[in-house]
Design a protein around this nucleic acid. Structure first.
Lengths: 194, 194, 194, 194
DNA sequence: AATGAATGAGCGTTCATTCAT
DNA sequence: GATGAATGAACGCTCATTCAT
């Protein structure tokens, strides 16, 4: 792992769990096993690091939805959406820091770079919505989904389900995550059915 | 408004939007029209303020679900749940800072008081779940909801919908919030129906 | 115990062990079971308290040497001096804080009231020296001490012994304090003898 | 002089004369001609500085007694002890701050690092006692000192004299320091003689 | 590419003190 | 006599950043 990647890794973690204001160059440097000064050989400022982490997330997210699109091309609409939910769950679990970083960037981006962050963050959201739009449109064309439904609404509601699952607060010790997701999806699918 | 309430009001705002680490005593004091030291006549530390804000939220939330329970006692299950979603939406809109504060406290509480925050925050979650458990159990008893459903799963999934709505990221310029909520609920209700 | 005495008691302790700069009105108030403000009903400032503690010490010390003088009036010079050393030891042990307060006031009085403290502190030193001058002068007159000795030098050297004993650093786990003092005195007494 | 040495020099002075609690980073920085933050490039905390000053004293003291031992190896016991007293006096005069720092560290070390300070400070005391033990033991072997004396007691009493002299409160305008020390020593020497 | 030394600004907190009650 | 609320200054310390090496 290059120094730059190392810095980004620990920055991501601290931005996610401590927030932008709570993260500090000193701690990031220490965790990365380098000095504060070295960070400035790779990034021009704290804000610069934040935006670089954000770029990383965007790239990661773009790849994810590109793969998803390719992988689900041949599936039935129902299976496609179900698998998407499960896939999102697995990814969120494996990349907890990235997920929290994403949510916090949406909820309350660092004040000083708010505009830039909000512009950048709209990309992965758009990627996801593009993917969902593609799936739902095809589903209606195929007859898998009744034509009376309005695609943007379906997309946004499904986006909502994705958020619940990635945030993970709906899971508790009394429920099995996989069954939760299965139920959640089946209610949705039955709900929009004929 | 007492000085204490004034401090809490501005603290809530800054904790919500800047995060615990990003909020500063100086800014809170300035916004409250007092000096930094005066804050310490009312609170023993920054952590103390955070926990006081949290207590306020807990009290607010307890009242909300108590009112909700009373108000919806006589309604049909479907109407009860639908109105709950709309009510939650309105409350979240009117108390944006409180909502964000809540979400951030759940996602990543201040490291040093993590245990205390997580213990406290479980109360309002429990209040909400108790309310939902009550409604769903009655719904099944009434025959409004098929008996084959497992209440805890219904509760958690509905809790997920509440979260989507309060976070508000599912709303965009192409969709009408009220219709979004109506659709979301109707899919859910139809989904769990016979 | 009156509030004033209570404040003085805890102030003495903190001035002695934390130093003037290290002692704080808040801690003194807390230990005294009152509020900071109440202290200002009894004293006009921190410096005022310090000087009041000093006055207390001066009064205590004056009484001590007055008693000593009366008590030892009838004794032989040797016994008088020996008993004085033992008495000083006992008093220092029973009033550890007062002893440390005295030493610190001599070594490095609070900068802002240095002049006043040094003037005040010269009184108890003078009391002690007056007492010793009295004893040594009488001792020479009696023929208990060779006339060739210079009284001020005897006084100051004996004052040195008193300091060693009150500071207490010469005592360790390998020596018996009482035997230490006995030896110390007997060397001195033999040393100045014929 | 390096920045670190510069900081230590002014810290020593302020710790000695203002006490640990009374010394302030701002004043130390100002006197050292640097900013407060620069201090933290060289020391991790105020306590850290205190311990570094203490280490410096320990090193200084170890060297002093090592030199003393070497220098007095060939002298007669009486001369050795007399010269030691005078040497200690000269050193204390030249290093007033260090002497006061030492005494205060023994009397009342900073509460938070009390244990560490007391452990460290025992070293120079031990060095001095080792030196004195060496001299007295040899003195008894040589027949310069009667064999009936108990070495640890002789050592501790002589240690007491050293303390009086370094503290310096026994000197006043009516006495000549050098004669005081000479008298003090001669009484002691005559006192332990045959 | 990496560092150590340095800095001004700001951090959360405590300081001694005041004042109306 | 005693208090709670308030304050400006100072506390020890950390912040993000710069610069010469």
């Amino acid at each position: 792992m290059t120094t730059r990647e190392n810095i980004l890794k620990h920055s991501l973690h601290d931005f996610a769990f401590e927030g932008y204001g709570g993260a500090s160059m000193a701690k990031i440097a220490e965790k990365s096993g380098i000095t504060k000064s070295t960070i400035y050989s790779h990034f021009s400022s704290k804000e610069d690091i934040y935006l670089a982490v954000l770029d990383q997330f965007i790239h990661y997210s773009a790849q994810l939805w590109k793969d998803e699109k390719k992988r689900l091309e041949t599936l039935h609409t129902e299976s496609a959406l179900r698998e998407t939910l499960f896939n999102v769950y697995k990814n969120a679990q494996q990349n907890r820091a990235l997920t929290i970083f994403w949510h916090k960037s949406m909820i309350s981006p660092p004040a000083k770079i708010q505009a830039e962050v909000m512009e950048k963050i709209s990309l992965p959201v758009q990627n996801m919505k593009d993917f969902l739009t593609h799936v739902f449109t095809k589903g209606i064309k195929n007859g898998d989904i009744p034509a009376e439904h309005n695609v943007p609404y379906l997309v946004n509601i499904f986006f909502g389900l994705v958020q619940c699952i990635t945030l993970g607060h709906i899971f508790d010790e009394h429920t099995d995550p996989e069954k939760m997701i299965e139920d959640m999806f089946s209610y949705f699918w039955k709900g929009i059915g004929k």
